[in-house]
């Protein structure tokens, strides 16, 4: 692992500093601030693009910082962010083992107004999902399908969900992409052919973001769809996995995601083992891919067990209340 430490003022963060790293597409500048109360390790991460042919940094494309950054040191390194993501003893930053998931807690039927709703926490990532429908097509009639229902997804992040306050809660490029992914995931699982000419709306909001946003959204939305009584082939469970030191890490948190791990998001229909969506936009040697997918599937099955428990508990509570 190549690692260089610069003593620089923060303003350099935006400058085009020449850095001799030729072999990676993405590099991250990591500012380490031990005084921060939020994490033991708190970083402000500046994602930058290195132009490989010239071997120097391009513009900073995204900056995630918190106001007061009286930081001491500035680390620039290659694919690894200069943090030990997996200790020699096999523990991760937050003390989990490699295959361990974060704690999942969920509740169904949190809103009375919507047809279905759910709240899900996975570690520190928290999401609310709401489902309306199936109902008559609203908006543009031209999207109507005469053989099946149309699924409409909207993903948004609360302005207070990240360390740096978000300006646009939804509608930016990242959210649009995420909405599209959610739509594709649920089209694979929901039996849309039963509701011709209708529309199903799935709205998901991230209330607190700590990594694995896509998978938490899918898990929350699954519960909401079940709560709405919409037929599905199976649960859809999702999980992100990363690859560090030849080991797949299940359910990445933000620290790990931003630490330059090549990660993979997988949505699975656990009983049949069908993959609803698989997404990876990092580099990984193809020999490792199979192990990574295998780890993701195991993690998804773990999530599905938790969701199953939540749904059964909810069913029993409601059926006891209604005295059936």
């Amino acid at each position: 692992m190549r690692k260089k430490t610069y003593q620089l003022p923060l303003c350099c963060c935006r400058c085009n500093v020449g850095i001799p790293i030729a072999d990676c597409i993405q590099i991250r500048l990591v500012i380490y601030n031990p005084k921060c109360i939020y994490y033991k390790y708190f970083w402000a991460v500046c994602l930058a693009i290195v132009l490989p042919e010239k071997g120097r940094m391009g513009n900073v494309v995204r900056r995630r910082t918190r106001g007061a950054l009286r930081c001491s040191s500035f680390e620039v390194c290659g694919n690894m962010a200069g943090l030990e993501l997996l200790s020699d003893q096999g523990y991760r930053l937050d003390g989990r083992k490699a295959t361990e998931l974060r704690k999942v807690q969920a509740r169904m039927g949190v809103f009375a107004q919507a047809d279905g709703s759910a709240y899900l926490e996975q570690g520190n990532t928290k999401a609310l999902a709401v489902v309306y429908g199936p109902h008559e097509m609203r908006g543009s009639r031209s999207r109507t399908r005469h053989d099946r229902a149309v699924i409409n997804c909207q993903y948004s992040m609360a302005t207070f969900s990240t360390a740096e306050r978000k300006r646009r809660p939804h509608g930016d490029r990242k959210s649009t992409e995420m909405s599209l992914h959610l739509k594709q995931t649920f089209e694979a699982a929901v039996m849309t052919q039963l509701y011709p000419r209708s529309q199903i709306d799935i709205y998901v909001k991230i209330l607190q973001s700590d990594g694995g946003n896509y998978s938490v959204c899918v898990n929350a939305a699954t519960l909401a769809v079940i709560d709405a009584g919409i037929p599905m082939r199976d649960y859809v469970c999702a999980c992100t996995v990363g690859f560090v030191d030849e080991t797949p890490l299940a359910d990445l948190c933000y620290a790990e995601e931003s630490g330059g791990v090549s990660s993979l998001a997988l949505a699975l229909l656990p009983r049949g083992g069908q993959i609803a969506l698989l997404q990876m936009d990092a580099r990984l040697h193809q020999d490792h891919l199979e192990a990574l997918i295998e780890a993701a599937m195991t993690a998804c099955k773990g999530v599905s067990k938790v969701l199953d428990e939540v749904v059964r508990q909810h069913l029993e509570e409601v059926s006891v209340l209604s005295g059936e």
Binding site: G116, H135, M191, I226, D227, I230, P231, R233
Partner: peptide, 22 residues
């Protein structure tokens, strides 16, 4: 089953009635 709910059998017909639906 494709929904969460109660199984109802009428002779040879099996339905699942969801607790909440449209």
């Amino acid at each position: 089953a494709s929904v969460a709910g109660e199984v109802q059998r009428v002779d040879k017909l099996i339905c699942v009635r969801p607790l909440k639906t449209r």
